[in-house]
Design a protein around this nucleic acid. Structure first.
Length: 524
RNA sequence: GGCCGCGUGCCCGAGUGGACUAAGGGGGCGGAUUGCAAAUCCGCUAGCGUAAGCUGACGUCGGUUCGAAUCCGACCGCGGCCUCCA
């Protein structure tokens, strides 16, 4: 199929082809683990996940790597070139605060490795809830930077020095020399003479004096006082902020040039620019990644997300109901984060979340109905599912869906085909089930699993099954549904309404169908 | 100061030169159904008109074109970057 992506490197939409036919190597800039991940982080991670899933549905084998940044690094915005407070130290401080308040999240907050481990675990939990496939490949495909300092980063730094792309300055630190790499600036559209040093207000003059060029960036900082430190030919210290991705991409993907590299828009400069310089400086190739894809930022209720504005939400805040006052199903948050185009800012709103909940409910109910076919008709379930997958993948509906995704990952357009198709009231057969299956392979809303713990019926699309199907997986709610039906049959409406209220209070959406009452877990 | 992305109807969000008479979702309104709801289904949801139809409308103003939401220019607005940040 034809696939096109907007490539930040070339500033245009280009046809996508992989280096090796049939496989795609992809590196995603991953989380820092000094705190819980927020919804803006996950906007970018969900984007990367949808990209991977799309490529898989399109027939590629995808080698995906997402790093976990667990090296301390400085935290003070004004003191970026060394100095300032260590991020791990800041995280430790926060953990101690919570310990004082009686919540001991971790045994020893002064152990940076323990802090990193704690937030890594939290991240993987969040990632699994939100359906990131890469989380199932942890730790294999999700390397931790601390594991790669000695085997991958130090050799790469040494190689850059040998090839005169890096130098040891008077202060003992190792810097990459941007002037040794003429392509520096190509990705972001910057040029060395136009870059206004310090315009971002984050660098300190005293650290600039040892560099040959103001834009030279740190590869190794000797610093015995740093919380996390390693032995190196340049003294005990820690690696620069950009080297980990270059080193781990090479180590885990096993190639000098990869197909796709992704990240948030803030990574374009300097992070990805520096990665290109480092990798190409080592390999001598002119490309690190053939395609650079960047997602735009998420806004909250139309404004930038910031702690001072009080609109800074972690994934947990949203899921546990601290944002909207009600728990939110992870599938709803995922839908909210993926429904817009990755190259537009998305606006996270309470209303949008409610919209998404409605959409997810419709999809889940419809899919659940299709899943009931073998149950309703007594067909062998496994055989039926396999057959359905095959037929679904060949359907023109699936082709349309893929067509939109192939056009620079147009998820909104693809969702349009989903709902347009649903409107046609598809027959409840193996093709329909197969189409749903294909949709969800990309959307990742776990429709099948979501139906667990709720009741559902096979005719929610008003299709011909000829048999009542009501599944009971949560016995309490199911019993209440039966009691409600009995009360209605006896025309004891007061009792029926009371039971309905109970179910609603317990967090269920209650609907009445010809076949009886159905309660399903409220999504948001 | 420089570089980059975006701006669509009540809201979200596709569309990127002619079939746009702007997909799809949400909300709203009317109807079917219901003990009542919810869900579901049908219709409507810029203005005028009984209607056929006419006129608007894609940040603003210009331009290119037989034809522009779509291309070009300027401007306005939003977002990102100019050494930690998705």
């Amino acid at each position: 199929m034809n696939i096109r992506f907007y490539n930040t490197l070339t500033h245009k939409v280009e046809p996508f082809t992989s280096i090796e036919p049939g496989t795609v190597s992809m590196y995603n800039c991953g989380p820092t683990v000094y705190d819980y991940a927020h919804i803006g982080n996950f906007r970018t991670f969900v984007f990367a996940d949808v990209l991977r899933r799309f490529l898989e549905l399109a027939g590629y084998k995808v080698h995906q790597v997402m790093n976990i940044t667990d090296v301390g690094h400085m935290t003070d915005d004004q003191l970026a070139d060394g100095g300032g407070e260590d991020k791990m130290a800041a995280a430790a401080k926060r953990l101690k605060e919570s310990k004082k308040q009686g919540v001991a999240l971790i045994e020893n907050p002064d152990d940076p490795y323990a802090v990193a481990e704690f937030f890594t675990k939290a991240f993987i939990e969040d990632a699994k809830l939100l359906g990131l496939k890469i989380a199932d490949e942890y730790p294999g495909q999700m390397p931790r930077a601390t594991d790669h300092v000695v085997p991958s980063m130090i050799p790469m730094i040494r190689s850059l020095i040998e090839k005169d792309h890096a130098y040891v300055a008077e202060d003992g630190a190792v810097y990459f020399s941007v002037q040794s790499f003429p392509e520096y600036g190509k990705l972001s559209g910057n040029s060395l003479d136009k870059l206004r040093g310090g315009a971002g207000g984050r660098i300190q003059d005293s650290h600039q004096t040892h560099k040959r060029h103001p834009a030279d960036f740190l590869l190794w900082k000797p610093d015995a006082s740093h919380l996390m430190k390693w032995d190196s030919p340049w003294g005990e210290g820690y690696p620069g902020w950009h080297i980990e991705c270059s080193a781990m991409a090479k180590a885990l993907l096993g190639r000098d040039t990869i197909d796709i590299h992704t990240g948030g828009e803030d990574n374009i400069f300097p992070h990805h620019e520096c990665e290109i310089a480092q990798t190409c400086g080592t390999t001598g190739n002119d490309r690190f990644a053939n395609f650079w894809l960047h997602s735009r930022f998420l806004l909250v209720e139309g404004e930038k997300m910031s702690k001072s504005k009080g609109n800074f939400h972690t994934v947990r805040d949203v899921l546990e109901g601290r944002v909207t006052g009600r728990p939110v199903d992870p599938a709803v948050l995922r839908f909210e984060l993926l429904k817009g185009h990755y190259r537009s800012n998305i606006n996270f709103t309470a209303k949008g979340l409610a919209d998404s909940a409605k959409a997810v409910r419709r999809l889940q109910d419809s899919y659940a109905a299709a899943l009931m076919i073998p149950l309703a008709s007594g067909i062998d379930r496994k055989r039926f599912l396999n057959e359905a997958k095959q037929i679904g993948a060949e359907s023109s509906v699936t082709t349309d869906f893929l067509g939109y995704l192939g056009d620079d990952l147009n998820v909104s357009g693809a969702l349009g085909t989903v709902f347009t198709w649903l409107k046609t009231r598809p027959q409840l057969d193996s093709e329909t089930l197969g189409i749903f299956h294909c949709f969800d392979r990309v959307l990742g809303l776990k429709w099948g699993e979501a139906t667990k713990g709720s009741h559902t019926i096979a005719d929610s699309m008003h299709l011909e099954v000829g048999k009542v199907v009501r599944v009971s997986l949560n016995s309490d709610a199911y019993k209440q549904c039966e009691q409600l039906d009995a009360a209605r049959a006896e025309k004891d409406f007061a009792k029926a309404d009371a039971i309905r209220e109970q179910l609603i209070d317990a967090g269920y959406d209650v609907k009445t169908t010809k076949e009886g009452t159905v309660a399903s877990k409220r999504l948001a």
